[in-house]
Computed example of a mutant assay.
Amino acid sequence: MTARSPLLKLNNGVEMPALGLGVYQSSPQETAAAVSTAIGDGYRLIDTAAGYQNEKEVGDGIVRSGADRGELFVTTKLWTADYGYDSTLRAFDTSLTKLGLDYLDLYLLHWPKPSAFDATVASYKAAEKLLADGRVRAIGVCNHNPDHLQNLLDRTDVVPAVNQVELHPYFIQSEVREANARHGIVTQSWSPIGGVNVYMAADPNAVKNPLRDPGVTELATRYGKTPAQVLLRWHLEHGLSAIPKSVKAHRIAENIDLFDFALTPDDVAAIDALDTGVRGGPDPDNR
């Protein structure tokens, strides 16, 4: 039996699975099998990016799965080197060709690029055209802080459907989530179990891993779940979308096995209290 994620309704009426498979740092050799496995386990959201250099393998995995295209929600992202109106349209065509698809479900700008925000605006306007032309079902952004978001809203017409940001119990992004909510934007969490704190640790001898936090492991023991399952359930309890990455079949299956338990409000608050206010990944103001 396969599990299916609950759906979140975007601000344009399109429905997106709350839980998906991310493929950041998934090697091309491993990506197709991971995608096919995930779809077989019930995942319907697959998140990739031009910058990940594995869009073709995501497409191969979709074909290998045998799934009906209409059942899937496929996201990719525009890399900053392709920002600008015409270059965005070309980059979109390239991504679509690599994925082997006729349309995308969600197209995101990967970074706000505040030092060259005119190019960010031009790219978003190109995404608006792709949306109007029916080539993508929804558009959005990644890594936009409230000031980036407001700047974009002031200069464009379509409110982003999604803002994908670093978000895990050690960096809960309250201000970003509140700004997104004011505009009806779904917050989507990358590195939802805090892996960025491990693979980008400033000090390898002082890694801050939410999976090993005593409060999280205690909840996992209480519920008979893994720490990763507890953390992913925390995202769902908050109404967030989460895209955990794995290429291991047992982890992929584990990460979607979330729908036979729920955290209490006190549990959620306890995990919220783990926030350090310190991001593990890059600062969007420097990208």
Rank of each mutant, 00 (worst) to 15 (best):
T88K: 11
L104S: 08
L45M: 14
L104P: 06
G100E: 08
L99E: 07
D47E: 07
D93M: 03
D93Q: 12
G134W: 10
L45H: 14
Y52L: 01
A81G: 11
G61T: 01
K56E: 15
R90N: 09
Q53T: 09
P112R: 04
V63P: 00
K98I: 00
A132R: 12
S65N: 09
E57I: 03
D47F: 03
T76E: 12
Y43Q: 03
A127R: 01
R64I: 03
G59E: 03
K98H: 12
L109I: 15
T75Q: 13
V121N: 05
L101P: 07
D86Y: 09
A127W: 04
T48V: 02
T80G: 09
R69M: 09
I39R: 03
K129Y: 10
L101E: 10
H110F: 07
T97M: 14
T97K: 15
Y103E: 13
L108Y: 11
A127M: 15
Y124D: 00
R135A: 03
T37D: 10
L131E: 03
W79Y: 14
D105S: 09
D133A: 08
E128K: 00
A132T: 07
T75V: 15
H110N: 11
K125Y: 02
L96N: 04
T75W: 14
W111K: 12
L106D: 10
G134Y: 05
D102E: 14
W79T: 10
G70F: 11
G42F: 06
I46Q: 02
V63D: 09
L72D: 11
A122P: 07
T48N: 01
G84Q: 10
S87I: 00
A119C: 05
R64C: 00
I62W: 12
T80Y: 15
G70A: 15
V74W: 08
Y52I: 01
T48W: 02
L108T: 06
G66D: 05
Q53N: 14
A122F: 09
L96D: 03
G66I: 01
K129F: 10
D105P: 06
G51D: 00
K56S: 15
T97E: 15
A81Q: 13
G51L: 04
V121Y: 05
R64E: 15
Y103T: 10
A127V: 02
L131I: 06
F73D: 11
G84H: 08
